[in-house]
Design a protein around this nucleic acid. Sequence first.
DNA 1: GCCAAGCTAGAATAAAAATTCCAAAATCAC
DNA 2: GTGATTTTGGAATTTTTATTCTAGCTTGGC
Lengths: 280, 280
Amino acid sequence: MPDTESDPCPPTSPPATIDAFFERLGSTAEHLPKRLKQFADFIAANPDRVPVSTVAELAEGADVQPSAVMRFCQEMGFSGYSQMQKLFRSDYSQKWPDYTTRLAKLREHGTETPSALLAEFVEVGRSSLENLLTTVDPVALQQAVDVLARAETIHMIGFRRAFPVTSYLAYAFEKMNVPAVLHSGIANINMEHLIRPNDAVIAVTFAPYSQITVDMATQARRNGADIVAITDVVTSPLARLKAIQLLVSELDVGAFRALSATLSLAIALAVSVGAQRNRI
Amino acid sequence: MPDTESDPCPPTSPPATIDAFFERLGSTAEHLPKRLKQFADFIAANPDRVPVSTVAELAEGADVQPSAVMRFCQEMGFSGYSQMQKLFRSDYSQKWPDYTTRLAKLREHGTETPSALLAEFVEVGRSSLENLLTTVDPVALQQAVDVLARAETIHMIGFRRAFPVTSYLAYAFEKMNVPAVLHSGIANINMEHLIRPNDAVIAVTFAPYSQITVDMATQARRNGADIVAITDVVTSPLARLKAIQLLVSELDVGAFRALSATLSLAIALAVSVGAQRNRI
DNA sequence: GCCAAGCTAGAATAAAAATTCCAAAATCAC
DNA sequence: GTGATTTTGGAATTTTTATTCTAGCTTGGC
């Protein structure tokens, strides 16, 4: 009997290394059926679970059926899950060193290599985050949330290195349907007059304070708006405006900082405000 | 019928941690029978094999019978090998597993206070940073730096929640006098034609990928520019473009993430590029 | 050297896991 | 819409793996 139909997907050889696996995954993931893609994403996000998990466990984690896992493995060129797991297990021992040792190893190279620099930023970011819980006054934070939740429109002011913070706030507010305006200073158009008495302002600035942020906040205060300040020390120029101050002390690496703590504070603030507004 | 004989070794409870396990091992190893001692030595020398090995494999490695392995496990207070392996596996990935459940819980209950939410973001940020050192491939990072240092002009593409990242990159490059263009999509003006063959692109996008970022990167690649992708998984659409991929897996709190890891990676990348360019 | 106590090897059994299969559902082309 | 094709979910099957059992061996005391 002649071979009327051949395998739709010819027997590809299995990837020989983890890198090869992910490379293939990257190029095939596009045109994979729904469930298989779903599982592919899960694997891409949690490769470290493969060596120590059963088919059933991974299937549950990715919220697919075990048979989908099998089909995925075969699609990737393995005979089955066992073969794929074997590959992942062979690579497993390299990952064993934990965070601390890895960090130490990277640091040995000084700041010569990009990885060492990355390790530096990671470590500094972790410290800054840890600090954040002590520098931010819970009462002030709650006040800030109250004020912002009550405001008609929220205005965000922050330039240069504070701009990533305000732009992320803008994104978050938009996603939660909170009326908010990002004052980006674009085309030097001054939109201070938009700030009305029932509005509130989030001003973000760090030493050396950008004059324009201070000016705009001052003007807004004069218009009767409430000010929430995200800044680094109590002596910042925003203190004079009776602003509610949220303090972040972010450590520098060289001339730059990772902004980890500042952004965490910002997003926590935004989500709280969003929750409180929608609750009412 | 009375219980004439009792277990020679009363049912001890299993060690709760790896440390407790090795402590018990140290104190009991002396007066263990020959084969069991032999296996104990093997375990002490190769603890990292336990999570990924079967009884038969370990038995062969230690040159004992599988049944000896079982007796060893029971001697150490476990019900069997499976229970012991569970302990070794749980130690291997302590940080990650229970996060998903914890965050799910958070999503249900909502968060009581802004401070609690902040603490959540801080915690998740710290984990993400730790993880960053494992997901970013040092070689790829170095390649990315090389490519970007060599480029005439660096273009940054990233919208919505990726925009804080690109805007911070823009700030950093400007401060270091690196020629860089932030494609903000402002006024819907398309500046793709600015991207020339000797240029390089940093594309930042996360699932669900914004189509415009992918389109712009594709166009840039067609123009002959190199692409560095900051994204979350290898299955991202940018993989097709032969982009140098820098992977960040950032945990979500609710619908948002703190971006701590992503920004740390971005700033480390920028500073490395700046340093390398000025060195030449 | 003989006996008792404990230990070991290997086979037998039970449990768990991987893998296959197929009917039902979804998707696609017309 | 209709039929062909692909994809899916779930159960059935096979394979692998853990665990138990027991006859024989080793060791130590006398």
